[in-house]
Simulated assay, not measured.
Amino acid sequence: MRKTIFILNLIFSTLIFAQNPESSTLYEKEYSDLINYVPKNLKFDSIHKPESHLLQTELNTINSIQIYSGFRKDFKLSESDNQWLDNRINQIATELFLDGKRILVSAVGGYSGCPNKMIDTLQLNNIEIVNLKFCHTCANSYRDKKFIEIFNSKMYSLMEIEPPNRKTKLFYGEFQGRSKERYEIKLILKEERTFKYWVNKGHGSDFTEGLWKNINETLILNSRNLNKDDEISFALSSAKWIEFKGLEFRLKKGKLTELNGENRKLKQTVE
């Protein structure tokens, strides 16, 4: 009982601190506003209520549900209440998305400490996304693991973006090689999952760009759709547009080998 009271006092003080509007920087205010933002159409489920009275409160912000989720083991919640909490995280992610907010959460801290700026933006598939960072010590990083996993998984699904896996970072960067006609080819894979591809033919270049994703060691390239202005520009230039639809490469030891037939091979350059 004492432990529960201590945890509730800790949660209450944390929520009050996080809602303090007197932030010292613009980034801190932006961070505070976002983690305490209440989605417009978020409702409390009056039919499927949690069993534990600890959860019968307004868990209607990222801040509040993140904290309660982190203490779920300490609260010794039942299986049904754990499921209710998971559903609530999914619900908040969905309502934030419907309010036009594209958010992904990452964990920072540990031995290296936490950055001064705890909110950032990133681009994935040409979508601007807010990256919220949760600060941890070396001892408590496990608390937000469940929240981050569920929240990010739902947000990726809603944005129709393939979530990264443990292999994704291996693809970042520039790859170079030669076509079967011995022309120089270059492929740039950006962290925001866009790519650019050139075939240098001296007098001009064949070119394409679009979105990429990976399934384990397999890279998949899909060119973007050209609009009318693009078509006119290419018609007036010496460049030729190439279209990739599901072009696949296999990555092994920094080398990409095409799997679709032309046997293109590219090697990752070291900066």
Rank of each mutant, 00 (worst) to 15 (best):
P115V: 06
N125H: 07
T137P: 06
Q91I: 05
N140T: 10
P115I: 10
G110A: 04
D144T: 09
K101G: 02
T137H: 08
K154G: 01
M159F: 02
S141A: 15
F147R: 00
S153D: 13
Y111F: 05
I127R: 11
G110I: 00
V105P: 01
N140R: 08
I103D: 09
R102W: 12
S106G: 10
M118P: 02
I89H: 10
D99H: 07
I150F: 06
L96T: 00
I161E: 08
Q91N: 15
K145Q: 13
T121I: 04
R88F: 01
K145D: 03
Y156G: 12
S106R: 14
L124S: 10
V108N: 11
A107F: 00
S153N: 14
R102Y: 15
I150K: 08
Y111Q: 11
G100E: 09
L132V: 08
N152R: 06
N116I: 05
N90V: 12
G100K: 02
K133A: 13
F147P: 00
S157Y: 03
F151N: 02
R88N: 09
N126R: 13
P115G: 11
S141N: 09
V105L: 09
A107H: 01
I129D: 08
T94V: 04
I127N: 12
K101M: 11
L98C: 07
T94F: 02
C114W: 12
A93E: 01
Y142D: 11
K101R: 14
K117P: 00
N131W: 00
D120K: 03
M118H: 05
I103K: 04
R102H: 15
N126H: 08
I150P: 02
S141L: 12
C114D: 06
Y156C: 11
M118A: 03
M159Y: 03
N140A: 04
V130K: 13
N140Q: 08
F151Q: 01
L104Y: 11
K154A: 08
L122Q: 09
N131E: 15
T121L: 02
L132I: 14
K117D: 07
D99I: 10
A93M: 04
C138T: 13
V130G: 00
L104F: 15
C138L: 14
E128V: 07
L96S: 01
I89F: 11
S106Y: 14
L96F: 05
N126S: 14
F97D: 01
L96H: 01
D144F: 14
I119N: 08
V108Q: 12
S153G: 08
R102F: 15
Q91E: 15
I129Q: 10
D144V: 11
L132E: 07
T137V: 11
L158G: 01
S157Q: 13
K154T: 09
Y111W: 11
M159W: 00
T137Q: 13
N140S: 13
L122K: 12
G100Y: 06
C138S: 14
K146L: 11
I127D: 02
F97P: 00
